[in-house]
Write a protein that binds this DNA or RNA. Structure first.
Length: 262
DNA sequence: ATGGTTGCACGGCAA
């Protein structure tokens, strides 16, 4: 028995229905976790997605910004929209599928300036990570078997960015962010499932800016999207991949889907 | 050093 989970920052779910159909046909994930759906709950395109075989859907939407959703071929036994840092941003949806916990995150991007004194968005990003770390550290993962996915908006490894040196002061790859992400990972012993399959000596990206003239030729990417599992699931990791081709589809998201098969 | 693109609440803001 296997379970395939894909995470994808779609940058507007309503503009990415063709892409979702393609993902459903080409990868056939059992569960798809979306970020940046950019739509209120009542406007979520439930029927179009149901027609792709994802009859179970949990949505934690928001008009205009952010928003996360879980699409599943298996029943969603419980869905908990979560909130952090005293804000009502829709950035975390916790669901229970097949008896395991799945956490779908859209971590704050953090703005442009990597200094919390000058840029409160950067402070929010650091605080968000710290709150999660404390929460997971207190035993939020109870069942033992759990999966954490999403756009974590941090590329932790040198091989997760096109130029480690040139990105050290760029939000997403600064030392303080990497430190906070590593602390989050340690909080519940999370294992980076993608890097278990594709070792850290290989460059790997999941996001390329819209602003490049030729995103593929310049290939200035970053690995911002992640799939982590608890240690007891580590032996079950069968396969992992980034669907880089999706970045070249018509009207693409700036993120490519990341998939792990357990 | 600057500007480059996309998507949303149609226009400034976030990414």
């Amino acid at each position: 028995m296997s379970l395939t989970i894909t995470t994808w920052n779609v940058n507007s779910v309503r503009l990415r229905l063709d892409g979702l159909a393609r993902l459903a046909n080409e990868i056939r994930p059992d569960v798809i976790c979306l970020q940046e759906i950019k739509v209120a709950n009542e406007l979520f395109p439930h029927q179009a997605i149901e027609a792709l075989g994802y009859t179970h859907q949990a949505v934690h939407g928001q008009a205009g910004y952010h928003g996360v959703a879980v699409l599943s071929k298996l029943p969603i036994e419980e869905a908990l929209p979560m909130h952090w840092c005293g804000k009502d941003d829709s950035r975390h949806l916790r669901v229970r599928i097949n008896g395991f916990d799945l956490h779908n995150f859209y971590i704050p991007a953090g703005g442009d300036v990597p200094d919390r004194e000058l840029n409160e968005k950067f402070g929010h990003k650091l605080d968000f990570l710290a709150e999660l770390t404390e929460w997971f550290g207190k035993g939020a993962v109870q069942s033992g078997r759990a999966v954490l996915v999403g756009d974590l908006n941090i590329a932790p490894l040198e091989t997760d960015v096109w130029s480690h040196k040139q990105l050290l002061k760029v939000v997403s790859h600064t030392p303080i962010e990497v430190e906070r992400l590593n602390a989050l990972q340690a909080s519940a012993g999370w294992v980076d499932a993608v890097r278990k399959v594709i070792p850290p000596d290989n460059r790997l990206y999941s996001w390329w800016s819209y602003r490049a003239k030729d995103w593929s030729a310049s290939d200035r990417g970053r690995r911002l999207d992640h799939i982590w599992v608890t240690p007891d699931l580590e032996p079950d990791i069968q396969h992992a991949d980034v669907l880089r081709a999706a970045r070249g589809w018509d009207r693409p998201s700036d993120h490519a889907p990341v998939t792990v098969m357990l």
